[in-house]
Each structure stands twice: as C-alpha cells, then as structure tokens.
Design a binder for these strands. Structure first.
Length: 409
RNA sequence: GCGCCUGUCGUCAAGUGGUCAAGACCUCGGAUUGUGGUUCCGAUAUGCAUGGGUUCGAAUCCCAUCAGGCGCCCCA
C-alpha cells in the first residue's frame, strides 16, 4: 500500500532538530521579555476578510497564496502572516485602553500556497513582535533593537540590517506619480512584470532583476527621482531621529532606497535583515511601521510597528545540532532494582532511562553511551551494598557511591 | 503560474541495455564471561518514485504522472 507522505511544502520537525527549535523559542521569550513584550497566541485561521483588508487585496499573498476554505457559509483562511491577526485581537480585546505601549510577540506556523524552494515552505514558522501606541521613532529603534538582539542571542552575527523610509501616504503619492511620470516614455521597453508593477505598485519596479529594465532605471533622469529625498519634513525628521538612535547604539545598518516591502500596510520606517549565506531567499527578518492598519481594521487610530522572522531560515543559519541526551542510563541485570533507581533519579528532576529488554551488561553500556551522559551501574555488588557506580560516559571517570547520596547531580 | 535539474535500502551512494543490484553508515542479532563510544562475525531492496512504452532482454532508452531541488515571481 502506498504510504501517505507529508504534503508538498510541509516538513516534520524531527526529534534530532527539536533542540534547535526549543532554543529559538526560549531565546525569543528571554529576549523579548527584557523589552517588556508579552507573548500572544492567536488562532491559526481567521476570517478571510481580515487578510483582504489587513494585508491588502492587491498583494500576491492575498491574491494567490492563501489557503481559503468555506465552512458554515463563512470564508476562512489559514493565516499567511500574523500581523493582521494580532491587530484584530488588539482591537477586539480593547487593548488601546491599556497603558501604551502595548508590546506583543508571537511564534507559530503560517501558511502560504507558493512553489516551495530553498528557504520557502507552504507551512513555515515565524517569530515576530508588534508594538502598539507609539508614534515616536523611539519605538522604531526599540523594535530594531529587539530584532538585532534576538539574532545576536542566537549567535548570528554576520547579518546586514537595511532600513528605508516609505514616507506617509501623502508624500508617497507624490513620489509615485513623479516616478510614473519619468518612467512613462520607457513603459513599452520594460519587462511584462514591470509593466504590471507600474500600475500596481510602482515602488516595486526598482528592484527588478531583468537587465533591460535595470538599464532604463540607471538613466540619470530616473536616478535623480529615485535618489531624491521625496519624503516630507515630518517623515524626514522621524527617519533622522531613528538613525541617530541606531548610530548611538552602534547598530550596523545601511540605507536601501529600493527597500519597499510587499505588504500594503507599511508607512515610514521599513527594515530588513539579510544573510548572504541563504541563497535567493535571504531575508531572515522583515518589518516596518503600519500606523493606519489598526484604524483601517476598525479600531481606534493607533500607530504601530513590528517585524517577523522566518524560523526555518534562522534554523538554516544555526546549523548546530542540539540533540538532547538523557542525563543518566541505569545499567543492571536486575530489572526491579533498575526500575526503582530510574524512578528515583526521575523524581529528583533528571531524565533517566534503563534497558527495558534486560540485555547483557556490555550491550547496556553500549546503549547508555549512545543516549546518555552518565551510566549508573547497579550490579550484584552494588545492590548488596546499597551503592551505585556512577560513570561519566564522556570522560570515562567513575566512582562508587552510596545510593542515597546526591550522586546524580 | 513559468524555466532548469533530479528521483536506487532508514541515510549516503556505486551501477548509463545482458551474472544473484557494489559499498558505507544507522538499526538488529551474535562473539569477546561487569566497562562502551575505537574489536570480530552475521542479518537487512525478487527491488531501483508510480504507470505505460521500446527491446530477445531495462534501474539503465522514450512518454506521462507524482515527488524533491534550484531559479523567476513574491516573501520570512
């Protein structure tokens, strides 16, 4: 009979890798807590409309990548990202009445119907942070600190931070129309993708990889528009203040004027953190400010900023195996005594196992050396004297001690 | 949705039309009569993703399907 396999783009996280995931999750709790962030867990599925209104119905994520299904005449969707869900919960639970800022973090699976490739799955995991209620750039800085400190705590150093400001809706519209105007004469020479982007999201034109397009965009009159500081005075001073904080705190970053991001809700600050050892899906973190999303979803007008990180991509960079070893393995040909001692050690708070099949001494020791740090040898002599021989399986040191002493620590 | 590549034991892998489909690791059994990870012996694919086709003969050639990898698009 044919076996049933995991679905395309989904993966098991096996015991051999789970240590790494526990490490990422524990570090998230540890680091984000230092900033006063609290974990929130929202449902895996939400009303489809939440994503259409929240993420934006012109985005690819909403247009072609959602897992949507009908149940009891409702249209439901497996969350493709978690900002919309967290915002929904923020509004629904009246969190705007909590003392600002409200700092939330989350981790969990997300679902996007895409062609899988390196660093991209259909079910993948994100860990992210959202900070609500602060319009000042101090929040932008703090969110970027949270991201960089988390990555540092994981032991990831060779990552580059890129930032940009998209401006507010007003100044962005002016920039968009300027850009479209200067590009209009070349529209017919651009690649088909760029022609649709020209209408849909002109800002995205700029990081096209087709050589012909790049030639066009390299023209002086177009570069002068791209490189111009189009953002208004308020947006500009917000961005300058953020840069001051990053400079003073010695965060290594660069400004990428082409950094746009694909979700509709961003304004002002956007940022990405990239690795150069991940192939083409190289962003481990993406985030930005979304000051109008809470209001657009029906809540009180509340500024907000956040980020999300792809945990599979982090795991790919953290290639160390963190396999758990059992603390102790009891070796004895007396099953009853082995059970008793094993339970004693477990009750003292340590992981412990014994050979359930009562194999020969040598086999038990061999098994112990594979799975445990210590062997607790309980032979005829030890039982008779109420003792146990404790052997360190890495150093081979061993000593025989009284059974009731704290030998296992 | 598009392009390129791949699919042999749990894992890595040899084999490119004609002996019983190498080998290694893992796993399991045994030997060495209480000391392993670093000894020795043995077991483990009538099967080469699946379904068709070509051929006297196919894991090896062809087609389709499925799955995987990489890239485009997009994104974490």
């Amino acid at each position: 009979m044919a076996i049933i396999k995991a679905q395309k783009g989904t993966k098991d996280i096996l015991p051999a890798d789970i240590g790494l995931w526990h490490f990422m999750e524990k570090t998230a709790l540890d680091i984000f807590s230092r900033y006063g962030a609290k974990e929130i867990r929202t449902p895996i599925f939400e009303a489809t409309e939440l994503f259409a209104r929240g993420v934006g119905d012109t985005t690819d994520i909403v247009n072609k990548e959602m897992y949507t299904f009908e149940k009891s005449e409702r249209s439901l969707t497996l969350r493709p990202e978690n900002t919309a869900g967290v915002v929904r919960s923020f509004i629904e639970n009246g969190m705007h009445r909590l003392s600002a800022p409200v700092k939330l973090w989350y981790k969990g699976p997300m679902f996007r119907y895409e062609r899988p490739q390196a660093g991209r799955q259909r079910q993948f995991h994100q860990v992210g942070v959202e900070v609500f209620g602060i319009k000042q750039p101090t929040a932008d800085a703090e969110v970027i600190f949270m991201a960089t400190n988390y990555l540092k705590a994981l032991g990831l150093n060779n990552l580059s931070v890129e930032i940009n400001s998209l401006g507010c809706p007003d100044c962005r519209e002016i920039f968009k129309s300027k850009l479209k105007e200067v590009l209009k004469p070349y529209l017919s020479e651009m690649c088909p993708d760029c022609q649709t982007r020209y209408e849909k999201n002109p800002l995205r034109l700029l990081d096209c990889k087709v050589p012909e397009c790049n030639e066009i965009y390299a023209k002086p009159e177009i570069q002068s528009v791209i490189q111009s500081d189009f953002i208004c005075d308020d947006c500009s001073s917000h961005f300058e203040e953020l840069k001051t904080y990053l400079n003073e705190l010695k965060i290594d970053y660069s400004i990428n004027k082409l950094l746009v991001r694909g979700l509709d809700y961003y304004n002002r600050t956007v940022f990405e953190i990239k690795s150069n050892s991940l192939g083409s899906q190289n962003a481990v973190c993406g985030g930005g400010r979304y000051d109008s999303l809470v209001k657009n979803l029906g809540g009180e007008d509340t500024p907000a900023i956040g980020f999300a990180m792809g945990m599979e991509r982090l795991a790919a960079l953290l290639n160390e195996k963190m396999e758990y070893k059992t603390h102790a393995f009891v070796i004895s040909n007396n099953s009853l005594e082995a059970i008793k001692l094993t339970e004693e050690v477990r009750n003292a708070g340590f992981s412990c196992e014994f050979d359930l099949t009562n194999k020969k001494f040598v086999k038990q020791l061999e098994k112990a050396s594979k799975v445990a740090k210590y062997a607790l040898i309980l032979g005829e002599d030890e039982i008779a004297q109420n003792k146990v021989t404790v052997k360190n399986l890495e150093t081979s040191e061993q000593k025989t001690v009284n059974r009731d002493s704290k030998f296992f620590i």
